[in-house]
Design a protein around this nucleic acid. Structure first.
Length: 422
DNA sequence: TCTGGGGTCCTAGGACCC
DNA sequence: TCTGGGGTCCTAGGACCC
């Protein structure tokens, strides 16, 4: 038997990130229960979590649980700046850093040991530096695999370090609740609980057939592998996005043609602009309409050629939304519209293909228009790059009233997401 | 009195092709 | 002449993540 791979994977995760930043920027908020957000809690400080307040919770529910809860507005550009500074600290220890969200990353420090000492020493050094230089608490898990490191960092919170030695992995996992695993949310947790499976140890011991039946073949196999500690995933420093989208919550609004059209115009403009900026176009467009009670439907269409022109996306999105609404004639109010483009391909392919349009009459006019519009869009992009986004606007978007969410938050979410890259 | 915006991956059924 | 299996793509829905 070959000796086991040593524990060289780190998972670093900033604690209650948005809330910690607010407490860092405003000392009067320290040691107090605070939440970032308003209608929905984006992040809660540990003092607030003690009352049961958590991310994703409606604001009224959070106030109910914790009457002294203080809501603070978000300083979104500071979140981006400080998180980037933390990532720069990680980069100083190894080039093998995989950032998986704004505030967490995996590292493989196998090649850094001769420079900086053992993985445990490196983790301690990172925590010291982030605390001293940036002022934020970060928890770190150290283990042999990504899954173990991620679970370990959750166990380490708040402001801690947990190292899982290769010989004690099963022991470490056995008594932890299944919901600490990546991929186990409320629905899966409940399904497993119904079958008497509560801990990761229970999951590891469960028969494959049972898990297949409870969760489906793929999910069952994946969780079973992780629970029995089979995880061969490596650090990926270059991941690329496979779709790009935008959405807007509307409150409760009558689904009028005008509202739908102007909102989709706004969303299509955002998505198309980001696609062109990144040099991509996509073949599949998906529109989601959410009704009251969180019921939602989607409609999608796949074209023979990729598109990225604002007006083409707007028109197609409007058609799809019309189909979705027509299928639900009893729903009169909508609460959210979303537009997403998938099947992404690099833009140059689009430009080469256009003159050689396939003889599909259904799409030919649309595609030909898309080419002309793409050229116009590029000049709009150029004007915006120089004079600001509001220098040019599309007529349908001018009347849009979806700017309820601060632009800075949209930008933060956008930057936190993966980027397509060639 | 049921909420934000950005994503990934999986499933199941049907169409279509060889 | 109605029968086989496998693969790929598309669509709609759902669970999950930060």
């Amino acid at each position: 038997m070959a000796p086991p791979r040593p524990a060289t994977i780190l998972h670093a995760d900033l604690d209650a990130f948005y809330a910690s930043v607010e407490q860092l920027l405003d000392p009067s908020l320290r040691a107090r229960p605070i939440a970032v957000g308003g209608g929905v809690v984006l992040a809660a400080s540990y003092e607030a979590r003690a009352f049961g307040v958590g991310a994703g919770m409606p604001g009224w529910r959070a106030r109910q649980l914790c009457p002294s809860l203080l809501f603070v507005g978000g300083h979104f550009s500071d979140y981006q700046r400080l998180a980037d500074e933390v990532m720069a600290v990680l980069d100083a220890f190894t080039p093998l850093v995989e950032r998986i969200s704004i505030d967490e990353a995996f590292l493989d420090v196998a090649g850094s040991i001769h420079l900086f000492g053992s993985p445990t020493h490196i983790a301690e050094a990172i925590r010291r530096r982030v605390r001293a230089e940036i002022g934020l608490p970060v928890s770190i898990g150290v283990a042999r695999t990504k899954h173990l490191a991620k679970v370990a960092s959750q166990v380490a919170k708040p402001d801690g370090l947990v190292v899982v030695a290769p010989q004690s992995e099963s022991e470490f996992l056995a008594h932890l609740p299944v919901e600490l695993m990546w991929g186990v949310g409320p629905v899966t947790r409940a399904r497993l609980a119904d079958a008497g499976i509560h801990t990761i140890g229970d999951l590891a011991a469960a028969p494959t057939a049972l898990l297949d039946r409870l969760l489906g073949k793929a999910v069952g196999a994946k969780l079973s592998a992780l629970a029995t500690n089979i995880d061969a995933r490596r650090i990926e420093t270059t991941r690329r996005a496979s779709s790009m989208g935008a959405q807007a919550a509307l409150g409760r609004r009558a689904a009028t043609a005008g509202l739908v059209r102007s909102t989709l115009g706004y969303l299509a403009d955002r998505v198309a602009g980001r696609l062109r900026a990144a040099g991509w176009a996509g073949r599949t467009l998906t529109v989601r309409v959410r009704f009251t009670g969180l019921r939602s439907v989607t409609r999608s269409a796949t074209l023979p050629v990729p598109i990225s022109a604002t007006l083409t996306l707007t028109e197609l999105a409007t058609e799809l939304a019309g189909a979705a609404l027509a299928a639900h004639p009893r729903e009169h109010e909508i609460t959210l519209l979303a537009v997403s483009v998938g099947n992404l391909v690099p833009e140059p392919a689009l430009q080469l293909e256009l003159p050689l349009d396939p003889g599909d009459d259904r799409y030919r006019p649309r595609t030909a228009r898309d080419a002309a519009r793409w050229v116009v869009d590029r000049s709009v992009d150029a004007v915006r790059a120089r004079f600001g986004h509001d220098a040019v606007r599309y007529a349908t978007v001018m009347f849009s009233d979806v700017q309820r969410v601060p632009e800075a938050f949209r930008e933060l979410a956008e930057h936190a997401a993966l980027k397509p890259q060639s």
